[in-house]
Design a protein around this nucleic acid. Structure first.
Length: 526
RNA sequence: GCGUCCUUAGCUCAGUUGGAUAGAGCAAUGCCCUUCUAAGGCAUCGGUCAGAGGUUCGAAUCCUCUAGGGCGUACCA
């Protein structure tokens, strides 16, 4: 809708025109402050320019009025345009707002280590990534959702050690000496019990079997993670394991050429060329690769698979990592601009007003699945999706557990359910509803219709700007308009009943479509 | 110290590539069910957009500095 208006104006002025929605609807549907920017060039006052421009439009079927007010040019869309657009939306159903954008995008997100269940911080990245995925696919992009599994390195060794110690301590009652770093938590006790049943008590004591147990446990934990994600409607297309990549190592090193160098028996990467504080070690002097090495081969593999764009969603604690990986991508001969890294800031928790520190090793994490059990996937997703992800988010655990009406997801769902109720109570046939024309609507009804028809541009804006929170914000605003309209207007028995129901069908469509892009199913009844 | 993200109502957060009177939810106070679901609506209260300068017709938004906070600054992941 906005695109259509913008295109009209672009033809007229030969340049892109800023279009905005006036806060005060009496100013029309769209407005532009273009006269202000033209005034310097034309040496005329904005008011006069706006007046001239407004008068220069002939009869456009799209607009019913074009007025200049205090230098702004305000456009009012015509009823026939809005009605046509609404009918078009209704016949397209949940494809409303879809597009045929071209491009292949590899989206990597979550990628949590398979050493424990997902905690609440991971959930934010998962929700953000999955929302982007749904938005991008709706717009037509060919997107692949990928999970990078760190199944090599120290943390896997640590997992093996932790598993054995947990088993010996909790199950066998032995006094064990805990190392400085180790994992703990209920999931480890469960796994240790399984080890006992499946491999016998000896497996918990035999240090030579640590690696074997770690690899076994890693798969079990990854399965747990996948289940956790499934519970919030997050699904991945591909999983790439770090360990599976090391066969490529020599080739990748050669490919990086002068990007890497040897010093004191170690291999370094010239990451300082890309703004990193200093060059980083990729291979230690004992030949063991560092964490960065895995990411280098992984990104090489990603680029060799030939996507047009790459989006990584990382926790904010990895931000120092961007320069290093971009350096590697560049040394490998690819354009680092194609790799876009979105950081999802920390989620910090308060408990009774006091900061609550989470530590995976100390076992004081808030697990995602516990929260999902308390408040449900819909509320969790809606809450995380509502916050832009580059701000640290703070919330009280107790507050998050609340399931009363203060939760905005109920507000939006209720709006949809109210419309469904009206549709089912009305005796108007679908033919009659669809056949009616949205002419002569009240100002409130017109505002509601216009808001509902904004969905496509919200979707596009939310995805292209990577600001997923724009969608839930929009849904809340649309629901608010609906609730007000519902209160003010008794639809059943209204002389324009069919017409109003058509309007409400558009609203329901936008809510339903918007929610599904958030991984939430709209409710017909509450 | 350096890098980076941030600071908007009592709390949690929005604020459209700089635009018309800075918004919502929660909390607080008071109204509205013989009205299609009150999981709702209306009203009131609440702001030096951290502070100071600058650019501009116009700044919460852009630039500089200052203060405060998160994260990073590992041959951990």
């Amino acid at each position: 809708m906005k695109q259509r208006v913008a295109a009209l104006l672009r033809d007229k002025f030969n340049c892109d025109v800023i279009l905005e929605k006036p806060k005060d609807r009496s100013f029309g549907h769209f407005s532009t402050p273009i006269a202000f920017s033209l005034s310097k060039e034309l040496r005329k006052s904005p008011m006069i320019i706006a007046e001239e421009i407004a008068n220069s439009f002939g009869d456009e079927s799209v607009f019913s009025a074009i007025e200049s007010v205090k230098g702004y040019i305000n456009f009012r869309l015509s009823e026939s345009f809005l009605d046509e657009y609404a009918s078009w939306a209704l016949t397209h159903g949940e494809q409303f707002g879809s597009d045929d954008k071209k491009g292949t995008i590899l989206l990597e997100f979550v990628s949590a280590n398979p050493t424990g269940p997902l905690h609440i911080g991971h959930a934010r990245g998962a929700v953000y990534g999955d929302t982007l995925l749904r938005l991008g696919r709706h717009l037509g992009y060919d997107m692949t959702a990928e999970y990078y599994v760190n199944d090599a390195g120290n943390q896997i060794d640590l997992l093996g050690v932790s598993l054995q110690l947990e088993g010996r301590s909790a199950l066998l009652g032995e006094e064990v000496e805990w190392p400085e770093k180790y994992y703990r938590g209920d999931y480890l006790s469960d796994l240790a019990r399984e080890v006992m049943e499946q491999f016998g008590e000896e497996a918990l004591r035999d240090e030579s079997r640590q690696k074997e147990l770690a690899l076994w446990a890693k798969d079990k934990i990854l399965a747990l993670i996948v289940d956790d994600l499934k519970a919030i409607n997050v699904h991945f297309d591909t999983f790439v394991g770090e360990a599976s990549l090391y066969g490529e190592w020599d080739r990748v090193m050669t490919k990086m050429g002068d990007g890497v160098y040897q010093n004191e028996g170690k291999t370094f990467i010239h990451s300082s060329d890309f703004g990193d504080d200093h060059d980083r070690v990729v291979v230690r002097d004992d030949g063991r690769p560092t964490y960065l090495a895995g990411d280098i081969i992984y990104h090489n593999q990603k680029f060799e698979r030939g996507y047009e764009d790459y989006i990584n969603i990382w926790g904010a604690d990895h931000h120092g990592y961007i320069a290093r990986v971009k350096a590697a991508v560049s040394f490998l001969g690819y354009d680092p601009e194609k790799l876009e890294v979105q950081l999802s800031q920390m989620v910090s928790l308060l408990k009774d007003g006091e900061p609550f520190k989470m530590s995976k090793r100390a076992g004081t994490v808030i697990q995602m699945n516990d929260v999902v059990e308390e408040i449900g996937s819909d509320a969790l997703r809606f809450m995380f999706a509502s916050k832009k992800c580059d701000t640290a988010l703070e919330f009280d655990i107790e507050e998050l557990k609340r399931t009363d009406s203060s939760n905005p997801i109920y507000y939006v769902q209720y709006a949809h359910a109210r419309i469904q109720t009206l549709i089912s109570k009305s005796e108007k046939s679908m033919e009659e509803i669809m056949g009616s024309h949205l002419h002569g609507l009240s100002a409130d009804a017109d505002g509601l219709l216009f808001e509902a028809l904004l969905l496509p541009e919200i979707i596009e804006d939310a995805f292209e700007s990577r600001q997923a929170q724009k969608l839930p914000d929009y849904l809340k605003a649309l629901a608010a308009k609906l609730h007000k309209f519902y209160y003010d207007t008794r639809v059943i028995g209204h002389e324009d009943e069919a017409k109003l129901l058509k309007l409400l069908l558009v609203v329901a469509l936008s809510i339903r479509t918007g929610l599904s892009l958030l991984g939430i199913e709209a409710k017909d009844r509450m």
